[in-house]
Design a protein around this nucleic acid. Structure first.
Lengths: 341, 341
DNA sequence: CTGAAAGCGCTTACAG
DNA sequence: CTGAAAGCGCTTACAG
């Protein structure tokens, strides 16, 4: 056996090459590779044979240029979001893929970097955009002027000026608060997410509002950043500030709730849920670990991504579709991290 | 204030529109928007003013068609991989983005679906491919024939026929095994990953080989699927088969190791690490949770993604660069889930 | 430095 | 059903 030598870099075959080999016109080749087009069986056969022979693959970029439809959508997501919802990106991509749409991915270290990214998506002629980052009214106007439909994922545009799919964070928190109050919890602390997270604001704000509605106005709030470590630190901070632990901690996400539980058990030697209740939000994988069994609200990620894809495709087909908001309710998970009666 | 009405969908401005407005030729506009091109300051100023006025954005798709360089790379990743290494995709995308390259994302439910996906990447004229899924020799030949460089991430091509970046799974396992044996562990069981995972094969095979080298030939192996649940089930299965627990469990990844620990503690009432040692592999976030503090080997994901990006860009610039293999050593993490002396 | 022109690889009216 | 031709929005020799 001799060592195989790599063939030299070949140029990709074009429809002209196929046409020449098959002895037909280039337009005929184009038609054979277009789904609903008219071509006789004989023609089709000859063209396909020639195409296979020289390994022809239609150039999607050239097609996009002439049809004014790239069949690509831009997906904008922050590092954090992929970290805590890794299913989101995969499910979005799968769902688009099943409909012949490719995903051009843009990741953000911080949501505020989105301006540059938006320009880039437009240069690449995406047919639409899904963003799991907040858009300013100016940015929404810009996309609207460019005629690019957008769907916000778990974000809200001012005055509902953009289509959005989201989870009802506030109702989720209301459920958590109601459970805790019904089970006789009196003193509460909250560990919030990052300052620039609208989701955290909705959750924290919702929890505070519902606590207040139920007669509890004095709530300690410490700032976290969604990470396990910040949940851990957050509990210690609450402990320092109060000189004692409250009855319940409401963390703005599961990762911080888990950090809290570990800090209570392994740092302060406090039993969860006997002496301290901890609740989270999200329903991430680790929330189901036997060590935690978190009391939380699970986001219906699968349904939300499905809705996102549908809404975006609808708007690509029909740009004046309007700014529908689809709000999903999370699933309450009773769990074992809170002392519920 | 009157209700603002969305402007009608406008067509994007082209370089011809800018040229007309600025009173220059279309080629001049093109040159102004190309980095190293010659244009007088006066021309540049006039063109940029006109461009700004009508909101001109160069069409990257058209540019790609003429330059034969799309500035897009295909990234192929399985659901599992993004689930356990969510940083990978984000870091890859960031690193490419810093170099002006966009990522066209393709996700796989199972690695075997890759054939279709490869065709799609080629239709979209990607300049190169990063794949965290195994490629057959035929697939590698196909890409090579198409002149598309590829870098395998944590996968190996037969006979090193493709450039690859990977973590030395075997040496990592050797360290884990050596630690356990040195600390007097005698009876071992292994929980493997999915059958089709080459990474799992390398880890499990490596562990078995090193155990055997150190005189331990009788090792129970049960099959998992990388999930927490399968680690949990795996331990119970080992317990059933042996009628008792071994001294140590070697899990093919951290998620399963964590499942094991929880099964031991919360299901069998067995102390980890006092009565049972459990080791994993990966160094995922949860491996550092205070409840687990896993003994594991951490993959240097950041360095690996950096290397992947560099290698791919090198091969895009110089297609005959050769099939370099870059093998990184994981970082041993002593942790507290194994009884080490 | 600047402009006219060709061409990247397709799709799609328009005739025949 | 089929082919010749125009054109999508760019880049880039080639003259001037």
């Amino acid at each position: 056996m001799t060592q195989e030598i790599n063939p030299p870099v070949r140029k990709q075959a074009t429809s002209y090459d196929v046409a020449r080999l098959a002895g037909v016109s280039q337009s005929a080749v184009s038609r054979v590779f277009k789904s609903g087009a008219s071509a006789s069986a004989k023609m089709r056969k000859r063209v396909l044979a020639a195409a296979t022979e020289i390994g022809y693959r239609p150039n999607a970029i050239a097609r996009g240029l002439i049809t004014q439809r790239s069949n690509m959508v831009g997906v904008v997501i922050s590092r954090m979001t992929n970290l805590y919802y890794p299913e989101l990106l995969v499910q979005l991509t799968q769902a688009f893929s099943e409909r012949g749409i490719r995903v051009l991915l843009f990741t953000l270290e911080h949501e505020s970097e989105i301006n540059v990214v938006l320009e880039q998506t437009l240069q690449y002629q995406v047919d639409g955009i899904v963003t799991a980052a907040i858009l300013t009214p100016a940015q929404i106007d810009m996309l609207s002027a460019a005629g690019i439909p957008v769907v916000l994922y778990n974000r809200q545009a001012k005055h509902g000026q953009a289509a959005a799919v989201r989870c009802d964070q506030e109702t989720g928190e209301a459920w958590l608060v109601a459970q805790l109050i019904a089970s006789d919890h009196k003193r509460f602390a909250i560990i919030s997410g990052p300052q620039d997270s609208t989701v955290s604001m909705e959750r924290t704000g919702g929890a505070l509002r519902h606590l207040s509605d139920l007669g509890i106005g004095d709530v300690t709030v410490v700032a976290g950043d969604y990470s396990y470590e910040s949940g851990h630190q957050g509990l210690l901070e609450v402990h320092r500030r109060l000189g004692a632990l409250p009855d319940a901690i409401i963390a703005a996400n599961d990762a911080m709730a888990i950090g809290c539980i570990d800090a209570a058990r392994h740092r302060l030697g406090v039993d969860v849920p006997e002496s301290l209740s901890v609740v989270g939000f999200d329903g991430i994988g680790a929330s189901r670990y036997a060590a935690y069994r978190l009391t939380t609200v699970q986001q219906p990620v699968a349904r939300m991504t499905q809705a996102t894809v549908e809404m975006l495709l609808q708007r690509i087909a029909q740009p004046d579709f309007g700014h529908e908001q689809r709000v999903f309710q999370g699933t309450p998970v009773r769990g074992h991290s809170a002392r519920l009666s």
